[in-house]
């Protein structure tokens, strides 16, 4: 969907580094991160547990400080220590988050009405009480719940319903970017579909942009326009979804894709798992960088690998 339109960059990360601790306890969780997220697209971040996905999401939200590089949102650098109150205010509104665990992310003692309204109240985004009630009622209906649900408490809802409440709470702020960190991992298969369809619907209607963090690659393939693969804090490959699935080039991406289960007994039984071995890289003198190997397809590689990958891709595309 993004390719047909002119690409309007909503957010970019430039040489981003995020570290925890300092001195000899310094741990670099994310390094050399470079990517653009286009307005209206779903940009997915995938990779194994501990690779730095949530850390990137939290840095964009301004929760985790960055140690180097830039995060640019709507043309303005947002990862700086001293944001004016107005800037902060603006960002909290424009960038919203949906969490993995609908159980833990809702205040158990607040009514659904309050939970959904909280942002409106904090940011004075309504004219009068009637306006607030109208907004909340419209919102709850658009996520497929009923106005009568407003006066109930989170524990009275199922996991899928709670996740809808989380979505309503984020969307009522009319954000431009939503960071969705594993929004469906905790949900049942049948409920997953409902929530994904809902996210898609809002994207179509409001031109919303999603940073979608997940480890289920079959879902990622369905929902995202472009995918960045991250391994131990390093983005190793970035491409449009179909390009990544058909022509994965970095050995880690290939290993990751080989691990995705195929829901077909005959094929699943033949399937071979490729294990990623970092010792295939020789980065001692020939240093790697993030290179655009085909238009829109980036890979972390040194010169020698770049030549090899270009050859391979040329062959694959010749077929």
């Amino acid at each position: 969907m993004t390719m047909s339109k002119d690409k309007d960059v909503l957010l970019s990360a430039k040489d981003l580094e995020i570290s925890f601790g300092s001195g000899k306890n310094k741990f670099v969780a994310v390094k050399n991160a470079n990517f653009d997220i286009y307005r209206g697209e779903t940009f997915a971040l995938v990779g194994e547990s501990g690779s730095g996905k949530t850390t990137i999401g939290r840095a964009i939200m301004g929760i985790t400080p960055t140690s180097d590089g830039d995060i640019i949102f709507n043309g303005e650098k947002i990862n700086k220590p001293k944001l004016s109150n107005e800037e902060k205010h603006n960002l909290t509104r424009k960038i919203q988050m949906i969490f993995q665990d609908p159980q833990a992310s809702l205040n158990e003692r607040a009514t659904i009405d309050y939970i959904i309204s909280e942002g409106l109240i904090n940011f004075h985004l309504f004219k009068n009480e009637k306006d607030r009630v109208d907004k909340v009622t419209q919102m709850i209906e658009s996520v497929g719940l009923l106005p009568e649900h407003l006066y109930r408490y989170p524990h009275e809802f199922s996991g899928g319903q709670r996740q809808r409440i989380g979505i309503a709470r984020a969307l009522i702020m009319e954000p431009e970017l939503i960071v969705a960190d594993e929004p469906i991992s905790a949900l049942d298969v049948s409920i997953r579909a409902q929530v994904l369809n809902l996210l898609k619907k809002f994207q179509r209607e409001d031109n919303l942009t999603y940073l979608f963090i997940a480890h289920d690659l079959s879902v990622v393939r369905f929902i995202s326009d472009r995918i960045a693969v991250i391994h131990l804090g390093q983005i190793v490959e970035l491409a449009e979804t179909e390009e990544l699935f058909t022509n994965p080039i970095h050995p880690y991406t290939r290993a990751l894709l080989s691990a995705v289960p195929v829901p077909d007994p005959a094929l699943a039984k033949q399937k071979k798992l490729t294990v990623y071995d970092m010792s295939v890289h020789h980065y001692e003198t020939d240093k790697p960088k993030f290179v655009e190997i085909r238009p829109g397809h980036f890979v972390w590689a040194n010169q020698q690998e770049e030549d090899l990958y270009r050859n391979r891709l040329a062959k694959a595309h010749a077929h």
Binding site: S190, R192, A193, L196, R221
Partner: peptide, 23 residues
Amino acid sequence: WSLLSSLPQLATRGGELFSIPGT
């Protein structure tokens, strides 16, 4: 049938995922 239909692998990108109505 419904369970198999909800496999994300069967959905077309840009389309809807099959979901079982009701509870």
